[in-house]
Simulated assay, not measured.
Amino acid sequence: MAATTLIPKSDSARFELLPVTSSSHRCILALDLGTTTGWALRGHDGLITSGSASFRPGRFDGGGMRYLRFTNWLGELDRLSGPIAAIWFEEVRRHVATDAAHVYGGLMATLTAWAELRGVPYEGVPVGTIKRHATGKGNADKDAMIAAARARGFSPADDNEADAIALLLWAIATNGGVA
């Protein structure tokens, strides 16, 4: 029997309730990596939390500050919600802009190093797989991804958060691609 609790929504993160079939879930994290990183996390209680985090460097920041902030953010998520048992991230194979490709590569390197140091399994999932699972179309646009998340009862603030939600729902539904 699943308990129902109402949790208020805030500007920084949205909380949604899904039926809890077990009292013990593994904490899993889904990420849409970028300067504004979308994230969705299923906690041990089955509650899905999502939001987006900005890793835009400040005017006087050195080149590595974005990645240090990302590392610290991952550590805080792990400390407050974890331990994180598995991480899925959106695997982007083509970027329109060179800077976006560099940022993505740096964030992915930081994420994989962070996970390796802690023994947390991680895996990239192709963009088309996520979009197809969420909308039925492997080339769905940003608005379609947001609409798909809303149709499932979520309130994403932007497409980054919607993509992370879709990725997390894919991971749950397919047991991380194993099912």
Rank of each mutant, 00 (worst) to 15 (best):
151 A>M: 03
163 D>F: 06
40 A>H: 00
1 M>R: 09
156 P>K: 05
118 R>E: 13
50 S>Q: 02
169 L>M: 14
100 A>F: 08
102 H>F: 15
105 G>C: 11
72 N>E: 15
58 G>R: 10
140 A>G: 00
6 L>C: 10
59 R>A: 15
111 L>M: 04
144 A>H: 06
113 A>E: 13
36 T>L: 09
176 G>S: 09
95 H>Q: 07
104 Y>A: 06
6 L>A: 10
46 G>P: 03
109 A>D: 11
9 K>E: 11
109 A>P: 03
153 G>Y: 01
1 M>P: 11
112 T>G: 01
109 A>M: 09
67 Y>K: 05
143 D>Q: 14
166 A>F: 03
130 I>T: 14
15 F>P: 01
39 W>T: 00
83 P>E: 02
103 V>N: 01
130 I>K: 04
40 A>L: 02
102 H>K: 15
135 T>N: 01
151 A>G: 12
92 V>S: 05
165 I>M: 06
59 R>M: 09
43 G>Q: 08
19 P>K: 02
100 A>K: 07
104 Y>V: 09
71 T>N: 12
157 A>S: 13
7 I>R: 12
59 R>W: 13
127 V>R: 05
7 I>L: 14
106 G>M: 04
111 L>I: 04
153 G>M: 05
31 L>T: 00
43 G>I: 02
51 G>W: 04
116 E>F: 09
157 A>Q: 13
19 P>V: 01
143 D>V: 09
22 S>Y: 07
20 V>S: 14
